[in-house]
Simulated scan of single mutants.
Amino acid sequence: MNKFKIIIFLLVGINVYGQGTVEAEFDTIFKYQFEPLKVKHNKRILIDASHNTIYSLSYGKETAREMLRIMDVDGYEIQFTEQVLDSVTLSSDNTDLLIIHGMPNDKIILGEGSNKEILYKSPLKDNETINIGKFVYNGGSLLLFLSHFPGGSGAQPILESFNVKFRDGYAYHPNHSGHKGSLCSQFNMTKENNLLNTNHPIIKSAKSTKLIPKNVKFLCGAAIFRNPEDNILPFPNNSINYTPTSDGKSNDVEESSDSYSGMIGFNFGKGRVVICTDQGIFRSLDLLIDDEKIPVTIHDPNCENAALFVNTIRWLTKMQ
């Protein structure tokens, strides 16, 4: 068999898809064909598995199968770490790029019954946030994936340290409807609709025209913003951020903006940072919802997310 089915839990399923669990299957077939880097290099990529990222799930690596394969084919040395992100773990002598893939808050329950109180706290220790900032400033790079509510708010300390504003909800625009009218939009991003910035250094420095994506799919993510020149996948003007209400049955409009983005990239000191709020933009999953198969999304034949991924990794590791 070429595909394996699993059951995954979407904590926001009630708000996004109208159900609490979603059936999915791994794509194990797709292999992106591209010309690997010709020069030999010793670039090392460290992937955080110590916090509650996608790699804390038993099937996390399988959903990221094609990402890992592409980096391996391009000559990168990949290592997972379950260690605290301290100055030793993030030594520039050992690591060129740190990947953090998903970072929900930790849920803390205090008391019982009518006295029960639920608190949320970032899993990142203060020193880890400081060390990540120093690592990048001194020449390392960071690739941070967030998600729609509640899958990204645990990274808030990192975002603040890089002066990135984060809206912990769902990005929506009426011209880009979500699945069956959900309030979490599915964007098809192209140069023509001004949602794919081909002038950003990540894309502009591509090694060949074949690696310049013509369209990128972005399925259900949160909103971030920093500087306009940082935008790689800007959202349309007047995009709306919806934030779930505490009862989980409806949504409040938090704000609308012309400055929202789904993916940004910028220099910070001697290093580089890319932040993307679609956690599945480069993963190898098919969601099965209401008898409909939704590729998420690197293997989707109707997009070129894989080309964007190659350019992202190369730009972050200063190989282009």
Score class of each variant (00 low, 15 high):
172 Y>S: 01
166 F>H: 08
117 E>P: 00
150 P>N: 02
137 Y>R: 13
164 V>L: 07
148 H>N: 12
162 F>I: 11
147 S>M: 03
118 I>D: 08
181 G>V: 07
174 P>G: 00
139 G>Y: 09
114 S>T: 11
122 S>Y: 02
147 S>A: 15
162 F>D: 14
184 C>T: 05
174 P>L: 13
191 K>R: 09
142 L>C: 06
144 L>R: 02
193 N>F: 10
98 L>Y: 03
136 V>W: 08
191 K>M: 02
141 S>T: 06
183 L>T: 05
182 S>F: 05
106 D>S: 13
124 L>M: 11
109 I>N: 04
174 P>T: 09
115 N>C: 09
101 H>V: 08
152 G>P: 04
172 Y>Q: 01
113 G>R: 11
152 G>Y: 04
113 G>L: 07
137 Y>N: 15
138 N>H: 13
187 F>C: 06
159 L>N: 08
167 R>A: 09
128 E>I: 05
113 G>F: 05
125 K>P: 01
132 I>G: 10
149 F>S: 13
154 G>I: 10
174 P>N: 14
141 S>G: 08
158 I>T: 09
159 L>Y: 03
189 M>C: 15
151 G>T: 02
177 S>M: 13
124 L>A: 11
130 I>F: 08
184 C>F: 00
170 Y>F: 15
179 H>T: 08
102 G>R: 13
98 L>E: 01
111 G>C: 07
146 L>Y: 04
145 F>M: 14
116 K>D: 01
179 H>E: 10
118 I>A: 07
167 R>C: 03
156 Q>E: 15
162 F>T: 12
127 N>D: 15
175 N>F: 10
96 D>V: 08
99 I>T: 07
188 N>T: 14
117 E>S: 12
131 N>W: 01
110 L>A: 12
139 G>M: 08
194 N>R: 11
124 L>W: 07
149 F>A: 14
157 P>A: 13
123 P>A: 13
184 C>A: 15
153 S>G: 14
182 S>V: 09
167 R>K: 11
190 T>E: 03
104 P>D: 06
192 E>D: 15
148 H>A: 12
126 D>T: 14
182 S>H: 05
126 D>Q: 14
183 L>R: 13
128 E>W: 09
102 G>N: 12
105 N>G: 04
95 T>Y: 06
184 C>G: 12
194 N>V: 02
187 F>D: 03
122 S>K: 02
186 Q>R: 12
103 M>S: 11
173 H>E: 05
188 N>G: 00
96 D>Y: 11
117 E>D: 07
117 E>A: 11
124 L>N: 07
156 Q>T: 15
186 Q>I: 15
190 T>R: 10
132 I>Y: 06
144 L>W: 02
165 K>Q: 10
176 H>S: 12
166 F>I: 03
126 D>Y: 09
99 I>R: 04
110 L>V: 14
123 P>N: 12
154 G>A: 10
112 E>V: 13
173 H>D: 07
179 H>F: 15
181 G>Y: 04
122 S>H: 04
158 I>Y: 02
181 G>L: 09
